[in-house]
Design a protein around this nucleic acid. Structure first.
Lengths: 195, 195
DNA sequence: GTCTTTTTAGCACGATCGTGCTTCAACTGC
DNA sequence: GCAGTTGAAGCACGATCGTGCTAAAAAGAC
């Protein structure tokens, strides 16, 4: 059922994820879908929640892999890149998730029903990125404001990469995504040192 | 007429920008709107085109201001920040523009009518950002790949900042936007030097 | 004045959508 | 066997939307 919602949003957009479309995609009748979800909003909010849990789960798993490595080592760097790649639509599964994720977050600006889940999504992702920043900038642990700024900066870059990879896939290839990630990490390391 | 479209998209989203809504917002009848725009798509594509021209116009004006300053000077840096701020929804006018701009670009993923204008938008913005990167990294003029990567990275960060400023305005304040921009420029300057 | 063009307005049709409501089959516990 | 719960299906109503079409008013040309 939720998978049907994901497929419709990924291929036709959130506004086409109506009860009738979802029911047909899931091979059910409208009444059957409404047996499980009293309203259209309920189904969509639940789908939003599921995609958040999926993405956050991938991120936290990858974060543990990062924290299991000694900072500064190549393995640590590689695990960090692997974590950041979990944001990007580099395979079919992640492409659908990111697509659905962005669609719901954009809709949350207009439809207040999505606002609580959107806030939860932001908190969960910001927590992971914040911890990653602390892993990558161990020397700046006391400068709280720099850590916050760098976390927001990394988060913005990731979301922008997501957008471009989804919307301008001709220009923003997978290799370009990885190059940008590497450049950003290199810029992180060289930053706030010579001051 | 186009202003009415902008207001509706900014406050209620693109999907509510129907002919009836636009006509009411503009104080006209549906038939009157359709006298100028034969179809709904025609009106929306024209609105997309207008918002692109407005944003691109601001950017190119700010780019000339950057190119009028000597590279490396504080005035050059300030003009660069001013250029990058033209992307962000830091006042009411730019907030509406950015909102409409993002809505149309997202819709272009689904609706092919918007694809040509979306491609034009990407080309125009990438050209400005590319020239800015060449201003900021004059020493790497020969390394084409680095310039391209850094342009895409800056573009991604800007779009991510736009998203966050619009969607999570509680966390992403105007000051945080400026801090992120300054941090990114600082990271640019210190990058690709010690190699 | 009349004739033509532009602008504004409105109607009607089919399509889609959310939702309240009823019906029917399948399964479960006893 | 049978009552009660659950899953699935369908109908009908009002609302919204794009669009083809007609008609009336306003403006301008002569």
């Amino acid at each position: 059922m939720v998978d049907a919602v994901f497929r419709i949003i990924a291929s036709d957009g959130l506004e086409r994820a109506s009860l009738r479309e979802v029911a047909e995609e899931a091979g059910l009748a409208v009444g059957s879908v409404r047996h499980y979800f009293a309203s259209s909003d309920e189904l969509l909010v639940h789908s939003f929640s599921v995609v958040i849990d999926r993405i956050a789960g991938r991120l936290e798993l990858a974060l543990e892999a990062v924290q299991g490595q000694a900072p500064g080592t190549p393995a640590h760097h590689g695990a960090a890149v692997l974590l950041l790649e979990q944001f990007l639509p580099l395979d079919e599964e992640r492409a659908v998730d990111v697509c659905v994720w962005l669609a719901f977050r954009n809709a949350a600006r207009i439809k207040p029903v999505f606002a609580p889940e959107a806030a939860r999504s932001h908190r969960a992702v910001a927590a992971v990125v914040g911890q990653l920043i602390m892993e990558l900038l161990p020397g700046s642990a006391e400068q709280q404001d720099i850590l916050v700024t760098e976390a927001e900066r990394l988060l913005a870059t990731l979301d922008g990469l997501c957008m471009h990879a989804l919307l301008q896939s001709e220009w923003m290839t997978a290799q370009m995504c990885r190059d940008v990630l590497e450049a950003h990490l290199a810029g992180l390391g060289g930053l706030h040192r010579g001051r």
